[in-house]
C-alpha cells in the first residue's frame, strides 16, 4: 500500500455522489495517487469508475467529501476550476475531437486560447506532440478523415498540449476497433514510462498488468479493493474473482 502523505498529487477522501434522481453513484470512495504513479481502475459497467474519474477534474460535481489536486482543493469555492483543469488532461471514450478543426488545430486550440501562446509557438509544439504520437503525416487532416485509433491519439496529444501534471483516461480504447487498440495503448505506455501521473479506467487487463503501479477494483459505487497488479490478479477476493471470471 502507498502511504498517504504529502507525496500524493491526487487526494480524494470520502467521496459521495448522489444524482438528483436519487442514484447513489459513489459511496465513500477514498483514493490517493502519487506523483508519477499509474493507477488503473477496473470494474463492471455502472460501478461508478467513470463517475469517479470525472470528479477528479470536476466534470462531475461531488455531493460530499474532499478532493485535492496538487494541494488545491476542488471543493473550495475560491478555487478557479479552469486553472485546475489545465493541470489535468482528459481523454474520452468517444474522443470528442473538435470536428471543425484539423488535427493540428485541435492540439493548438487550447494553448492559443487559454494559455495565450502565439499561434506559431502553439503550432510548433503541436507538430512535435503529433509526431510523438505517430501522426506527423496526418497533421492537416480533419477528424472525419482519421481512423478511430488516430483520432484517439490526436486526443491524447491535445490533452498533452496543455502540459498537464495528471492525465485521466476514461475507457480510451472501448470505442475502438480491436486492431486499433494497440496503437493507443502504445502511446499510453510511452507516456507512463515518461513518468506521467495517470489514472486509467479501462477493460484492458493486459495494460493493467503490464503498466499499472496499482489496480483499483470498483463495484456498485464502492472502492472494493486496491493492490499492486501482481497481488491484484492473484487475489482471492470473491467479488473480484467473480468479475475477473466474467471478463477474462
Amino acid at each position: 500500500m502507498t502511504n498517504m502523505t504529502d507525496k500524493s498529487i491526487i487526494q480524494a477522501r470520502n467521496i459521495e455522489k448522489i444524482y438528483p434522481n436519487g442514484c447513489h453513484a459513489l459511496k465513500n470512495v477514498s483514493l490517493d495517487i502519487n506523483r508519477g504513479e499509474v493507477v488503473v481502475i477496473i470494474g463492471p459497467s455502472g460501478s461508478g469508475k467513470s463517475t469517479f474519474l470525472r470528479t477528479l477534474n470536476q466534470l462531475e460535481t461531488i455531493s460530499d467529501g474532499t478532493i485535492h489536486i496538487d494541494e488545491v482543493s476542488l471543493t473550495d469555492r475560491k478555487t478557479n476550476i479552469n486553472k485546475v483543469r489545465e493541470e489535468v488532461g482528459m481523454v474520452f471514450q468517444s474522443f470528442n475531437l473538435f470536428p471543425h478543426k484539423t488535427a493540428l488545430g485541435n492540439v493548438a486550440l487550447s494553448p492559443i486560447k487559454v494559455k495565450k501562446k502565439p499561434r506559431a509557438v502553439a503550432e510548433q509544439e503541436g507538430r512535435e506532440l503529433l509526431k510523438k504520437v505517430g501522426l506527423a503525416e496526418r497533421m492537416n487532416n480533419y477528424p472525419s478523415h482519421l481512423s478511430g485509433g488516430q483520432q484517439q491519439r490526436v486526443a491524447i496529444a491535445r490533452a498533452l498540449a496543455m502540459h498537464p501534471k495528471i492525465m485521466l483516461f476514461d475507457e480510451p480504447t472501448s470505442a475502438l476497433d480491436p486492431e486499433m487498440v494497440g496503437e493507443v495503448l502504445d502511446v499510453m505506455k510511452s507516456l507512463a514510462s515518461d513518468g506521467m501521473t495517470m489514472v486509467v479506467v479501462t477493460h484492458e487487463m493486459g495494460f493493467a498488468r503490464e503498466v499499472a503501479d496499482r489496480v483499483v477494483f470498483m463495484e456498485e459505487g464502492e472502492l472494493v479493493f486496491e493492490e499492486s497488479p501482481e497481488r491484484f490478479f492473484s487475489s482471492d477476493n470473491p467479488r473480484l474473482q467473480r468479475f475477473l471470471g466474467q471478463v477474462l
Binding site: M90, S94, S110, K113, V114, K115, A159
Partner: peptide, 22 residues
C-alpha cells in the same frame, strides 16, 4: 454532442471560450 463542451472544459477553457471556439 455534450462531449464537445466537456472536452473543451477539460482543456481549461471557461464556458465563454468553449462556446466561442468550439
Amino acid at each position: 454532442s455534450p462531449g464537445q463542451m466537456e472536452a473543451a472544459r477539460s482543456l481549461g477553457m471557461n464556458y465563454v471560450q468553449a462556446m466561442v471556439n468550439v
